[in-house]
Amino acid sequence: MNLIEKGIEHMQANELEEAANTFNQYIEENPTDPVGFINFGNLLNHVGEYDKAQNFFNRAIEIDSKSGTAYYGLGVLHFEQKNYQQAAKEFQNAVRFGLDDADAYYMLAVSLRNQQNEKLALPFFQRASELKKSDTEIQFQYGLSLAYNEQIDHALNQLLYVTELDDQHADALYNTAVCYLHKEQPKKALTFFKKTLDAQPDHMLAADGKIKVEEYLSEG
């Protein structure tokens, strides 16, 4: 196990001082390798030392101006501070410099969504979903993005896929019901409102939807 792997192991065990010492040792022994600075930056991000973390990421970029992981770290840093415009810029840099990673595309998409730019976010949610097909949160958010972009048929198929991955995913079940309402299929919508409540009995939106659809069907 090298020093970087050892430092990451300390981080995962929440042994933060040990992680810092290990990454610092790596940097001292490898001052021209951006990896040490990136991992120390990630550690500082983790504890909320954003200014210090930024210095480490910037140092990594000085060493390698095309380090996708360094830009990703900066993206996380700005995202954590709710600076979504700058976060999106850094995540775009990460992708541009070769970080073909589901989390990078996902974080870029969420950063754009948080700027109310759902249309631009959609292809990045799609790419994330392609790279991590079993990640229910990524798949769900892609489904929502399709719905927000009024691609209801595609959204419905995507949300049904999420319910295949997790048949207790209450928000996916609820939004499936909403899609069926948009498609004017109230009986199917009612089925999924009920499934939502089975998964999460206190889901108020589903409860309200169920009552309204039952009233509509009884009048018909």
Rank of each mutant, 00 (worst) to 15 (best):
I63G: 00
I63Q: 01
K66L: 14
K66W: 14
S67W: 06
G68Y: 00
A70K: 00
Y71G: 01
Y72K: 11
Y72E: 14
L74Y: 05
G75T: 05
V76Q: 04
V76G: 02
V76N: 04
L77C: 09
L77N: 12
L77I: 07
H78K: 13
H78E: 15
F79G: 09
F79N: 12
E80S: 01
E80Q: 03
Q81R: 04
Q81L: 01
Q81D: 02
K82T: 11
N83V: 02
Y84H: 05
Y84I: 00
Q85R: 11
Q85S: 07
Q86F: 13
Q86V: 12
A87K: 01
A87D: 01
A87I: 01
A88P: 02
K89I: 15
F91V: 06
Q92K: 13
Q92D: 09
N93Q: 06
N93F: 07
V95G: 06
V95W: 05
V95P: 07
V95C: 08
R96F: 02
R96S: 07
F97I: 05
D100W: 12
D101T: 12
A102L: 02
A104K: 13
A104I: 10
Y105W: 08
M107K: 15
M107G: 15
A109H: 10
A109K: 13
V110K: 12
V110N: 08
V110A: 11
V110F: 08
S111F: 00
L112R: 01
L112M: 05
R113N: 13
Q116T: 12
Q116W: 11
N117F: 06
N117W: 11
N117Q: 12
E118D: 14
E118S: 11
K119N: 13
L120S: 13
L120H: 09
A121G: 05
F125S: 08
Q126E: 13
Q126K: 15
R127Q: 07
A128E: 00
A128K: 00
S129G: 01
S129R: 01
L131H: 09
L131E: 07
L131Q: 09
L131M: 08
S134Y: 11
D135R: 06
T136Q: 14
T136G: 09
I138R: 04
Q139A: 14
Q139V: 09
F140W: 03
Q141C: 07
Q141F: 13
Q141H: 08
Y142P: 03
Y142S: 02
Y142K: 03
Y142F: 11
G143W: 00
S145W: 15
S145E: 14
L146Q: 03
Y148R: 15
N149V: 09
N149Q: 15
Q151G: 10
Q151L: 11
I152H: 04
I152Y: 08
D153Y: 15
H154M: 11
L156A: 00
N157D: 14
N157K: 11
N157P: 05
Q158P: 10
Q158C: 06
Q158L: 10
L159M: 01
L159V: 02
V162M: 03
V162S: 03
T163A: 15
T163V: 13
E164W: 12
E164M: 13
D167F: 04
Q168I: 10
H169K: 03
A170C: 05
A172R: 09
A172G: 15
L173Q: 15
L173C: 10
L173V: 14
Y174I: 01
Y174A: 02
T176M: 07
T176H: 04
A177G: 10
V178H: 08
L181H: 05
K183D: 06
E184K: 06
K187F: 03
K187C: 01
K188G: 04
A189M: 04
